[in-house]
Design a protein around this nucleic acid. Structure first.
Lengths: 245, 245
DNA sequence: TCAAAAGTGTTGAAGATACACCCATGG
DNA sequence: CCATGGGTGTATCTTCAACACTTTTGA
């Protein structure tokens, strides 16, 4: 144990990855496995979010970026700190206690939860030492600690956020079709959206730019490609105070 | 020092109080004052948010409620955990270090920030032992630690939140006039709102209920009183996924 | 009768919803 | 030539923004 870890404060990262082919919003989880030394008795066998203690010298944002880089190799991703979880009993499950003791961290750990947005394609799981795996949001495995709750709250926050800010493009490749965006919204929100109305609305945004380019290598009619311009968005972003409650 | 305080984790409370008479959105701050023992040399003299360490046995929500009750005597207020502040240098100002040492808490303290909504009238500052004082949001005094930033971020969150959820009524008395609500929105958002459009919009909401009652004791034309019905709101609250980015 | 604040209507523009078929392409 | 998914138009309704005067009341 390095001296500089703060043993009762950690970050946990909900890594949302969108699989554009499967039209599936996934979460990246790592395997948690422990068996007794004597008999080969399985003590802990489930999945958890990736996370780690915060170091003495680093900010929370830095800690989360470090953890994410360790897991995926990626940097400069969209991230959001969305909540702290610190209930006294959050690590008190049977498996959790076995795990906590084997890892020597505090039973009363506060974890600062972040979520990250990326494309599943950008992560090479083969090169990964944590047995990390993607799970569709609707098909999560057994989860350790309070991580099920953390994922659910991250998802709620993402739902709300994607309606008011153009963060969805973090989940898509640079060039995308209108239907890609629609599929993504449907995956995040779990609703059906009318195709004509959706296209009209999105195309009308100045920061959605039609390219002189169409899909290639598709076996049917190739679709028009678009890109998102953050520059244009930042210039326009209307601070209009619209009361919609 | 009681054994059960967690010395590197605290809660800080941004207490927003609306003064309906003055039409002013205020923050409740407490005096931080320390002078050297020998000479009467002032070492620390500014204001801070109310806050305290979290106890071993309590949740973060409980800790914040405890701190708030200690300060105001009030319970069951609207509260929101909006962010954690944990930068390594957040308590490293000169005054802050003197203070931290005199109070024996960790220089690397993570604070979970909450904001609370209430009416200034509901708090009796005379009965208060912390030298607490209301400050209008636009006229904050010199603040210790990173509390200026915490207040600013709380305010930003409140601005966003009051547009999408009916939390403003937490800042108003049970019975209020349309102009009260408008003044409040103007105070929070710092914008002018058209009176006719605002009234029309609010009155159209089913959960805003016109009472058979008018103001009394005013020296001019008494205004119609309304109330907010949380029951009605909860029943209606439309989960319509409106993309407004 | 006056001062002060309450309250009221209309219009034009923009955005929302609902709805079903034709088209272009690669195989 | 056909299967597949891409792409399109209209009518109706609701909501938004802009804008200035009249009414009611207590003092």
């Amino acid at each position: 144990m390095r001296a500089k870890e703060i043993l009762n404060v950690s970050v946990d990262c909900v890594v949302f990855g969108y699989d554009i082919k499967a039209k599936s919003l996934n979460v990246l989880l790592i395997k948690r496995y422990l068996e007794s030394v004597a008999k080969s008795n399985v003590l802990v066998d489930d999945y958890v979010l990736t996370g780690y203690h915060v170091y003495e010298h680093e900010t929370l944002d830095e800690a989360s970026a470090r953890v994410l880089k360790e897991l995926t190799g990626l940097t400069n991703l969209y991230k959001k700190q969305f909540k702290v979880f610190g209930a006294p009993d959050r690590l008190m499950g049977k498996s959790d206690q076995i795990w906590v003791k084997s890892k020597k961290f505090s039973s009363r750990t506060f974890t600062v939860a972040y979520y990250f947005l990326l494309k599943t394609n950008d992560v090479d799981l083969k090169a990964n030492k944590h047995k990390a795996k993607w799970f569709p949001l609707g098909e999560l495995p057994k989860l350790g600690f309070d991580h099920k709750k953390i994922i659910e709250e991250a998802h709620e926050d993402l739902k709300a956020k994607c309606l008011s800010e153009p963060i969805t493009f973090e989940l898509l490749p640079l060039k995308f079709t209108m239907n890609d965006v629609q599929d993504l919204y449907q995956s995040i929100l779990g609703v059906e959206i009318d195709n004509r109305n959706f296209r009209r609305k999105l195309i009308s945004r100045k920061y959605i730019i039609a390219l002189d380019e169409k899909q290639v290598g598709v076996s049917k009619k190739p679709a028009q490609l678009y890109m998102f311009s953050k520059d244009v968005y930042d210039k326009i972003s209307n601070k209009n105070y619209l009361i919609s409650m």
